[in-house]
Design a binder for these strands. Structure first.
Lengths: 146, 146
DNA sequence: GCAAGATAAGAGCATATGCTCTTATCTACA
DNA sequence: TGTAGATAAGAGCATATGCTCTTATCTTGC
């Protein structure tokens, strides 16, 4: 290993590249959703709930691939804002089921076309082919033994 | 647009895909750097400073593509931990120059091989070709008019 | 040389993310 | 059937990120 003197180029860092892209695309989607007051993270939770009806925190966290405790906190914010409701699971006293409130359903319906427009613009800006390849690359990304 | 009834599949969301990848790769790099107590975000700041010698907050934020105020806060933490030092710019009273302390240089030297190992393992896990294509896709990503 | 606009950065607020520790509940086995 | 190990979630702590508002300083045109 004689190249220890080679300068570290932070632009070579794969992690930095992905994090940077994440910040940028987040701002882009957040800006599109802004009229609803939702952020993309919140919208995805509402969308997931709209898809599955109701779910406990852990499965929802797994579904969206976020840390369990992080999901718990986001759920707390959404509950505070009256967008979702939590009720004890009838079959498991440890678990609480999350469901959309009427307000949540309304917000989701309002935000969906804005999300679609963000998707559309993103794909227009980047080219459908490039987006597809990027998605392919991300989907295959491995960060540990499965 | 008659397909409004089509279910929203959160897995179709480009933003979600990138954010998810960002969380995963961040955990991966953070785990590698763990022996030093640095996270990848902090390591990148040290690496940037090691490259440029010293810099004010705004240019450093631009260099790393993070929001100015976010950089300010990270810099505050690093200063608190004695890893960097801030001194007033001799030529501009509004600006403060950041530079590594001895401890910062030591930490950077200690963390660099761990970062290199993370890069190596990441490329081994994903295949050099796939990583190259992913980087290419991220580099080209556009989220607004330039 | 001064006032108006530009710029560097801090303060305050809010969300997002993840870690560890703890508590409550459940399940399975002896 | 009672207890040991598994599991769902909350609490507490810390960093990361971005927004708006404010303050201090600089620059430029007059």
């Amino acid at each position: 290993m004689l190249q220890a003197d080679q300068p570290l180029r932070i632009d070579a860092c794969n992690c930095n590249a992905v994090r940077k892209a994440s910040r940028q695309i987040t701002r882009f989607y957040d800006a599109h959703l802004e009229p609803t007051g939702l952020r993309i993270t919140q919208f995805l939770i509402l969308a997931a709930l709209a898809e599955v009806g109701s779910a406990a925190i852990n499965p929802l966290a797994e579904r969206l691939d976020v840390e369990r405790t992080a999901m718990g906190k986001m759920v707390g914010l959404l509950e505070r804002d009256g967008v979702i409701r939590l009720r004890p699971s009838p079959t498991d006293g440890r678990s609480r089921l999350i469901e959309l409130t009427e307000k949540g359903r309304r917000l989701h319906a309002e935000a969906s076309p804005l999300w679609r427009e963000a998707q559309r613009q993103f794909e227009q800006l980047n080219g459908a082919k490039n987006v597809k390849e990027l998605r392919q690359g991300l989907r295959q990304m491995v960060v540990g033994p499965s």
